[in-house]
């Protein structure tokens, strides 16, 4: 068994796929592994893969051409997952989809074959990532810094920043904004009128309260007040609220602080 060790970002995974495939050792004799996780296996040879954007691009192009855009979106989202086996699972699905004799129409539909454990795993990861990104479309909160820049911090489970880029830059074309993934320390940056980009391991200074714009506090207060007054007390249901809006998101949200403390006082 030869295990290709690749980095956990999309470029790293696609390069790993490229190298494992190109090794021609036989699909049954190779595996992919993301080294930051898991234990070492005995009796395996390790090959470390340096991410190579060109190789990654080739793999991406092949997937799009052979399997279609929808399949690409699914595989791409799966690669953004935080699950440890994502690289190898994606590799296995590609082995199925790109096998000889599989026509173009079938290649894309391989992803419908939930009977297959690798397809099911990829599907599940992709759905999980998509759901998390969808939640953050609503849960991201910006604060205005004194220079007018909008700044947001989040702590998602998966690498969702690339899935937020189109949405927010289309929504706020004339704003400068930053969304900072505090766990990975990746930053999504958008310049007014320009494109967006994700920078890995970005250095962000810790924010001091004094750096917010003059109007920021007033709007925070208006919003928090609104979130309280819009609730119907006769229907109050904190358990339902918690189920739909888990505590882990609230820490990073303007109005979440209030509900965090409410929560603490109401249930010991």
């Amino acid at each position: 068994m030869v295990l290709f060790e690749c980095q956990g970002n999309v470029d790293g995974i696609l390069t790993g796929i490229y190298d494992a495939w190109a090794s021609r050792l036989g699909h049954g004799n190779v595996g992919l592994r993301i080294p930051e996780t898991g234990t070492m296996e005995l009796f395996a040879e390790y090959r470390s893969v340096a991410p190579d954007p060109e190789k990654a691009e080739k793999v991406a192009r092949t997937i799009r051409r052979r399997m279609g855009e929808r399949a690409w979106q699914t595989l791409y989202q799966a690669a953004l997952s935080s699950r440890r086996d994502r690289a190898d699972r994606i590799y296995r699905v590609l082995v199925l989809a790109l096998a000889p004799g599989i026509g173009a129409d079938m290649a894309g539909r391989i992803l419908d074959r939930l009977q297959d454990p690798d397809v099911a795993a990829v599907f599940e990861m992709s759905r999980n990532v998509g759901n998390e990104a969808h939640r953050y479309l609503g849960f991201v909160r910006f604060q205005e810094l004194s220079g007018g820049i909008l700044f947001s911090r989040i702590r998602p489970e998966n690498q969702i920043l690339p899935l937020l880029g189109d949405h927010f830059s289309n929504r706020f074309p004339r704003e400068n904004f930053v969304i900072f993934d505090t766990g990975r320390r990746d930053a999504l940056l958008h310049r007014a009128g320009g494109p967006w980009a994700v920078f890995e391991k970005a250095e962000m200074e810790e924010l001091q309260p004094g750096r917010f714009s003059a109007g920021e506090e007033a709007f925070r207060k208006l919003w928090k007040g609104f979130c309280q007054s819009i609730s119907i007390s006769e229907r109050e249901n904190p358990r339902l609220q918690k189920q739909l809006w888990p505590l882990k998101y609230r820490k990073w949200m303007t109005e979440g602080e209030d509900f965090l403390s409410n929560h603490r006082t109401s249930s010991p």
Binding site: G138, N237, Q241, L244, W245
Partner: peptide
């Protein structure tokens, strides 16, 4: 898109 949830869920 849901942005938040009030105390009534």
């Amino acid at each position: 898109i849901c942005h938040s949830f009030s105390a009534d869920g």
